[in-house]
Design a protein around this nucleic acid. Sequence first.
DNA 1: AATAGACTGATTATCGATAACGAGACACAG
DNA 2: CTGTGTCTCGTTATCGATAATCAGTCTATT
Lengths: 230, 230
Amino acid sequence: MGVAEAVTSGGSLGRSAQVAHALRRDIVLGTRAPGEALRELELAQQFNVAQGTIREALMGLAEEGLVRRRARRDTHVAPSNTDDVGELLRIRHDIECHAARRVIERCDDTLLADLGLQLQAMQFAALQEDEYSLLEHDCRFHLRLFAAAALPVVEPILSRCLVHTQRYKILNSAPQSRDLTATANRHLSILDAVRDADEGALATALSHHITTIVDFGPPLGPAAGRGTQA
Amino acid sequence: MGVAEAVTSGGSLGRSAQVAHALRRDIVLGTRAPGEALRELELAQQFNVAQGTIREALMGLAEEGLVRRRARRDTHVAPSNTDDVGELLRIRHDIECHAARRVIERCDDTLLADLGLQLQAMQFAALQEDEYSLLEHDCRFHLRLFAAAALPVVEPILSRCLVHTQRYKILNSAPQSRDLTATANRHLSILDAVRDADEGALATALSHHITTIVDFGPPLGPAAGRGTQA
DNA sequence: AATAGACTGATTATCGATAACGAGACACAG
DNA sequence: CTGTGTCTCGTTATCGATAATCAGTCTATT
């Protein structure tokens, strides 16, 4: 497992949030493999923070479903299950497409600007070959779009769907088979639909976008086996 | 606000879980009204535990969407929004009905027993006029049923839908208008469908059950029309 | 040899105190 | 009277140490 970067009072968000961010990155990218143990004191030493801070980060990740905590026993990286992801993708499709109407109805001028910014960031990340950065902005793109629907309680659900979908994609496909720039540009049709304030087009674009994220066909058959120990 | 019961090393689960349970109860029942401030030190004194313990409980509730935390600012009871609940109900409908097939396929012998137990507990709670207990077992009934679908990552999503749905119902209808025994017995048709291992009947029973949980008609304004999707 | 019981090592859960942070009040200058 | 900068207060975030608990092991008894 990786040598963790000590957190040194960097960003404006709290230390536990920074730790959670770093761990999330490792888990989504597969640097920390499913099943890997996460001991609080060990992580505290690695990140140079107190155990309680690690604890909070782990609790957050547990709520996201990325780690599994068994009370007073252990904490480890959660597995990535195909059936689960399929269902999450279905739910995501349902939520995002259904929100299209509300989004168009409530679309304000900052929405388009924010989406454009995220798209730009995605394209930049693609050029840099920084896949995780791309994924992050992908997430933000969809969450920002959904935020316009003004359904705050549903947002965390969508967020969970997004994260798990992305993790599954990373864990179950060969790195060279993923064209980052293409992934970024796949959001163009969504942006266009929002620009045109075309509810139907937005729903269609989202539906197509989501259904083509993961091809459940080819990659699962042969070497889909997890246990891709580093 | 209520005088909190000091937690005295009661159950087998940790103190923070007990605190979270108590707070969840108060919030769902409306004893702690939406918008009410929740100060960590104050609660720590009321429950006779350390601030950190309260903190964990609040973080858990925040992830459930029952409280809203603004970093370094404050923590308060989350509002209960009609639009959100409508959407959550839609998602819940989608998840539970779609799981019917998997549930029947993987139904093992303990499922029926567990569901029967929960139903009994609901009926008992109804007789006692203990609405929260009824709600809890209602939750467990549905979660136990869904657990048979073996989609662990989706479970927390369903859980969130259940909790918010129930809270909304409590907060937006007169207590005397709710027939507890009828609510409990409404699960009979679901149990029957599982007993018969009839996938179609289960999906139908669940669909009817969920769509008739909240009548968005009378108590709310005019257009409460949730899409008659399906 | 098999079983029941207690011990040990490892891990999480809790605590009490201190630090960091943001918002609003307040005084002051323009 | 208005705008700006500072200051204090309330609240959350972090820390380091200690307590509680569990799983697996090891032993003693039958």
